[in-house]
Design a binder for these strands. Structure first.
Length: 418
RNA sequence: GUGGGUGUAGCUCAGCUGGUAGAGCACUAGGUUGUGGUCCUGGUGGUCGCGGGUUCAAACCCCGUCACUCACCCCA
């Protein structure tokens, strides 16, 4: 038996980096006023089809979709935004306070071919803000991401930003783009030809060298922004500059989900092979209305948790220095029974204590204590017990002291609570 | 979905032109009838990913399949 393709166990030895990221993220989000939200892993397929877009790759071929016993079509969530928007509308949050900031951490599912930094079950750290149209909130999210990565000690990450325009300016852009593409048609790859009528925007993102060459002079959304979108984007850029957040304007950055408007960005790394995006986000001013709520501006991002951990592993091992305070070496049945009660009492006092119940030799138990990196070892042998005492050995200094049984637990607590 | 690379002990890997498996680490026991990390000695542990084929004989050659991995596509 083994895990299914693209799914994996995250084992205890690896978990400390995950916890470190979670802790920093939660702390930072809360400082910024975000509230945690937890949403279902399973939703009606319709939700994702309508929000992400029927002709996107995610919906067309990557979702885990199946019929439940009643025949309803359900899908394992491929991303978080759609569900959070659904929740915002379902609970009529706009009525009591339209301005909401959420974060969530959890698994997503996409049935792609696995490779480095890409899994079929992967984890995202997600943040969304509803009800604020100001461009300052766009820069705020990018600033927040920058701060989080800084706190985690990450360098070599770059923010790529772009503006995708809005329903007002997009038609004129699309017209110009299609005209341009038509003129270069014979130089484009098969995929790009196919994209022409499905999603021409995506052609700008093509990585085939010949296409890239053909498209250097392609019209960009940036050149067709309406007045409002242009002002918005300028504010984002100037604010980030004032905050000293490094970024580059990347007019080929096109996000793969249909709901994005205006600002879109990615935080990219060069250390993960082809999976350069560690985080990505964008504004989606039309989605709340599209899914049945009132017109509400919104914006959010997702961090690729797995990828973030992989980047951190390259620079930070962060091993636990002393996972164990005390190891009890008990020789003989009587000592084992006594040791059992001591260890439980010490555990109650939050002192990391372990012992071995197999009745092994002193040498074997000392080896085990060493393997577990215990700071101290308590040796309870027959000789000691007849004198109502045990030996406490400091594993670093090799110093040993004798402790009386009557005051044993209080003495130990005193030593470890220092 | 497409293409390349790789599957031998728990881990990292040897194994030549086919002759039916080996090292290091880890684990375990002992060297010290009660003291760890170093050292020495012994021991446990393998359907050679799986299934078929060729052959007197396959870890090795052929076919299929599964998994891992990298890349494309796309995304976090």
């Amino acid at each position: 038996m083994q895990t299914i393709r693209g799914f994996r166990d995250i084992l205890p030895e690896k978990i400390c980096l995950w916890q470190k990221v979670e802790k920093e993220a939660k702390q930072l989000f809360e400082a910024f006023g975000f509230k945690e939200i937890r949403i279902p892993i399973l939703e009606k397929t319709q939700l994702f089809a309508r929000s992400i877009g029927e002709v996107t790759d995610i919906v067309e071929k990557e979702m885990y979709t199946f019929a439940d016993r009643k025949g309803d079509k359900l899908t394992l969530r491929p991303e978080a935004t759609a569900s959070i928007v659904r929740s915002y509308i379902q609970h009529k949050m706009y009525a009591t306070d339209p301005i909401r900031k959420f974060f969530m951490i959890g698994p997503m599912f996409r049935r792609e071919r696995p490779q480095k930094g890409r899994y079929r079950q992967f984890y995202q750290i997600d943040a969304e803000i509803f009800g604020v149209e100001s461009a300052l909130i766009d820069s705020l999210l990018i600033f927040l991401l920058n701060e989080l990565f800084k706190r985690l000690g990450l360098t070599g990450l770059t923010a790529h930003i772009n503006s995708l325009g809005c329903p007002e300016c997009r038609p004129s852009f699309q017209k110009a783009l299609l005209k341009f593409i038509e003129s270069k048609k014979d130089r484009l790859c098969e995929n790009c030809i196919r994209r022409m009528d499905k999603n021409p925007l995506r052609i700008l993102d093509c990585k085939v060298p010949d296409c890239k060459k053909a498209l250097v002079d392609a019209p960009a959304t940036l050149d067709h922004l309406c007045r409002g979108c242009e002002d918005h984007f300028n504010t984002v850029k100037s604010t980030l500059e004032k905050q000293k957040v490094d970024f580059i304007v990347d007019k080929s950055l096109v996000r793969g989900l249909d709901y994005y408007t205006r600002t879109a960005w990615e935080i990219q790394t060069t250390t993960l092979g082809a999976q350069s995006a560690v985080a990505g986000g964008g504004r989606y001013d039309g989605l709340v209305k599209e899914l049945g709520g009132p017109q509400t501006p919104a914006i959010g991002f997702a961090i690729g948790f797995d990828r973030l951990v992989e980047v951190m592993e390259q620079i930070d091992k962060a091993p636990e220095p002393h996972p164990l305070d005390l190891f009890i070496v008990a020789l003989g049945d009587e000592a084992i029974e006594k040791g059992y009660h001591w260890s439980c009492e010490l555990n109650q006092a939050d002192i990391r204590t372990e012992m071995d119940f197999r009745g092994k030799s002193l040498k074997a138990l000392m080896k085990r204590a060493n393997k577990l990196a215990a700071r101290y070892v308590l040796i309870a042998g027959e000789n000691e017990l007849t004198q109502n005492a045990v030996i406490l050995r400091n594993m670093n200094t090799k110093e040993q002291v004798s402790l009386h049984l009557e005051t044993l637990i209080p003495e130990l607590i005193k030593i470890f609570k220092k």
